[in-house]
Simulated scan of single mutants.
Amino acid sequence: MRKGNLIKMAAPAILSAAMMVSGLPVMAADFTSDTAVETEAQTDEFDAADDTADAFAGDEETPFVDDQAAAEDEFAATAETGYKYVYAGLTWAQYWASEGVYNAANTASNGTKDSHDELDKGGFDTVTRATVNHGLHRGSYQCEAIMYDKNGGSYEISYWTSANDAVLTDGTTVKLNQPERGQITKADGSVAEFDHYSVVGLKYVPVAVKAEDYEAFKSQFKIVEDGSTIAGGFGENNLQSYSAVADVTAETNGLKEAVKGSDGTFTFKARTNGTGSGLKDQALQTASNVTATVKEASGSYGEFLRVDITGDGYGALGAKMYAVKWDYYGNGNKVL
């Protein structure tokens, strides 16, 4: 991660239902205007920032926003039979808009290519870029990932069964030759030239929506209802694929309430802490047996600040974590 000063960060992990980001952390942070964000990932380690071992192993008592307790009280008062509880696919901007994240809706490009001949496309572009550079399959754990061919065709990925073979959200399969990523072979045997790959958001966010608004909600978002299967990834070393049955309730950890506006579109309230996992017959888990090691850094402008998360539990954490919020302190004790 790169920023203007050596920083102190807090990383409260969202440990609900299904949780992760393509083998690397979502870098959604409160930054000053002159800072940039980049991520690096390695095959056998997850790179995050800060002394996160305690944060990941904790009970998630730390709120995302100052009025978290009030938000939870308000939501508890409305969590009645008049709501439908489902998983929904949200873009980064939709997810982070209510979480007190600086410039969360920024998707603008700076128009200048970097040393990798790529454009910085906004606040969450690092997620797509790092995923592409370190294995397309890593975008399928907790993220909505789409592969495109040069004819304009698109392939919405549900999960990968190997580094080459993907199952799409419609149940069909495709094969991508690796590591060249040159051609996509479809289920019918036809071939298309691979163009690019994008990670556009989170695919399994637990959401509560008023029953009267549910049909409108379904027409705008990809949803997974209770009793349906959720799945992601494929196994490699300690990082394992998963398949589970959705079971979202008012007590699901990380639940967001969807609010229908006068124009018919939806926004989302801040996430709430809960006691449920959102998975049938599975208890809510916290990370264990992980060690965070802060690497040496000089604090110079623009350098990478690196923390390696290792230990027996890093694979489980990586496969289940879907979002991390970073607090930027600069040189002081106040969150900027």
Rank of each mutant, 00 (worst) to 15 (best):
A49C: 11
Y83V: 04
A244M: 08
E72V: 13
G315N: 07
A10F: 12
L24G: 14
R181D: 05
T286H: 13
A17H: 12
V132T: 12
G100V: 05
G89F: 01
L336Y: 07
G235I: 01
L15W: 06
T252N: 02
S109K: 00
T43R: 12
W92I: 02
H116N: 15
N289Y: 01
Y242S: 00
W160G: 05
D213H: 10
V26L: 13
E236Y: 14
S115E: 11
E72T: 15
G182E: 14
T91Y: 07
A41G: 14
V335C: 00
K222I: 10
S277L: 11
A319T: 14
N110Q: 02
T267M: 05
P63Y: 02
Q240K: 14
A323T: 12
A287D: 04
F64Q: 06
H196D: 00
T293H: 07
A79N: 05
T173Y: 05
P63Q: 01
G100S: 10
M321N: 15
Y141Q: 01
V294I: 13
N237K: 12
W160H: 09
Y87Q: 06
S154Q: 09
A97G: 10
V205K: 00
A77N: 09
A316H: 08
G232P: 04
S158T: 01
G58W: 03
L24R: 13
T81N: 14
V174G: 07
A11T: 12
Q42L: 05
R271D: 03
G261S: 11
W92K: 08
A287Y: 03
Y197P: 04
N238T: 15
A36Q: 13
D73C: 06
T131P: 04
S158E: 15
I184Y: 07
H137Q: 13
P179N: 03
A270C: 12
G332H: 08
E144H: 10
M321E: 04
V199I: 12
K280G: 05
R2G: 09
T249A: 06
G82L: 03
T81S: 15
E38S: 11
N133F: 02
